[in-house]
Design a protein around this nucleic acid. Structure first.
Lengths: 194, 194
DNA sequence: CGGTCTCTTGACGGAGTTCAAAGCTAGTGG
DNA sequence: CCACTAGCTTTGAACTCCGTCAAGAGACCG
């Protein structure tokens, strides 16, 4: 199980067998049933998750109990409220499994010790976060420059297989649209095809 | 000059005098006049900037020559198209000085050598990017959950001194609004005060 | 001063939301 | 194996926030 994580790390930095041993000892494997929660608002985010199998979502509760989805994570992606995880602040987000999922878990308390034993992980996470940061700036640019329709078409073009895995109303939320409006877009697209 | 950068790094990791020497040798100081460009679209982002004094903006050209501002950087913030800087891809952004500015420059070619000499920098940048990533996720959440008016009021509350430094139409762009709409918001606020 | 850049004001329009109701679909239990 | 329910999607009408366009008023800089 942990091999999927080790493989992913190896794509960015070198690891010897002692490193792999240290990593294996610092992570635990957990499974979560569909709809199970990994983190709830106002809690401290004690764990950082690497998705081995399944699908997670990060979301906030805005107002009137409306859920805003910020991020999805599928296989080989990291998920946590890293602000809470790093600084010990209460989280403003929730994390939930959208499918039965298997994740590699790094506990807050184990991070600094592991990073001292395997300093390459600092580089690994530096690259992970650098990419994630770049991607989210691109996303902000996209949100402001494109219409809702354009964002939807772009998403299904870039991640066609992912659209199959999540309900439409969650995709709508992620794109910053209402389910009703996304439904209209789908109807237009279908008319064009048939 | 380079001391401001060293001080900033010291807030996150330990440095001895040899480390400081290595850092000083790897960075150069550059100045840019107001309206000068540090990066233009379709170029490779060869340099990463730490703002010692002044103010920069990162923006893209959307359509009809409209500029979308993605990010501002003032003193003690980093600025670059990190995707282009890291992977050598052509940049889709522009970086411009909004004031006469002094920056510490790390050239692409010097990065890996410097990081090998001063491995704490991997940790430093890991923390910088982790924070930046968390902040941009928060921003995406904010964009979707709040109205334009709410985003404007929040911004001037959080960064009152910053509002003085940039023209209104640039703040409007950064918030994803038109200058006209932001002007109306200001008029409402002023009526309330007087 | 004169011209360019920035901010304001107002009329109009459109992309997307809200609300309500009905149609589907899939999982669950009898 | 079918019926039932709950969750998801669709449809339509009314509405709203905010953008677009156009014009004028300041303000800043050479």
């Amino acid at each position: 199980m942990i091999l999927k994580l080790v493989d992913h790390i190896k794509k960015h930095v070198e690891l010897n067998s002692a490193d792999i041993e240290n990593i294996s000892n610092s992570f635990t494997i957990k499974t979560f049933a569909k709809k199970g929660h990994l983190l709830k608002e106002s809690q401290l985010c004690e764990e950082s998750y690497f998705v081995i199998k399944g699908c997670l979502r990060l979301y906030s509760i805005c107002q009137d109990d409306k859920e805003q989805i910020i991020q999805f994570s599928i296989e080989n992606w990291w998920m946590a409220d890293f602000r809470s995880f790093e600084n010990g602040a209460k989280s403003i987000y929730n994390i939930q499994a959208l499918e039965d999922s298997v994740v590699a878990v790094l506990h807050r308390g184990n991070q600094s010790e592991l990073f001292e034993k395997v300093p390459q992980l600092e580089k690994y996470f530096r690259i992970i976060f650098q990419n994630a940061y770049s991607a989210s700036l691109w996303r902000i640019n996209h949100i402001f420059c494109k219409t809702g329709a354009e964002r939807y078409y772009q998403f299904i073009k870039l991640f066609p297989e992912f659209v199959q895995r999540i309900p439409q109303y969650m995709l709508a939320s992620f794109l910053g649209l209402t389910p009703e409006f996304l439904s209209i877009l789908r109807a237009k697209k279908n008319r064009h095809i048939s």
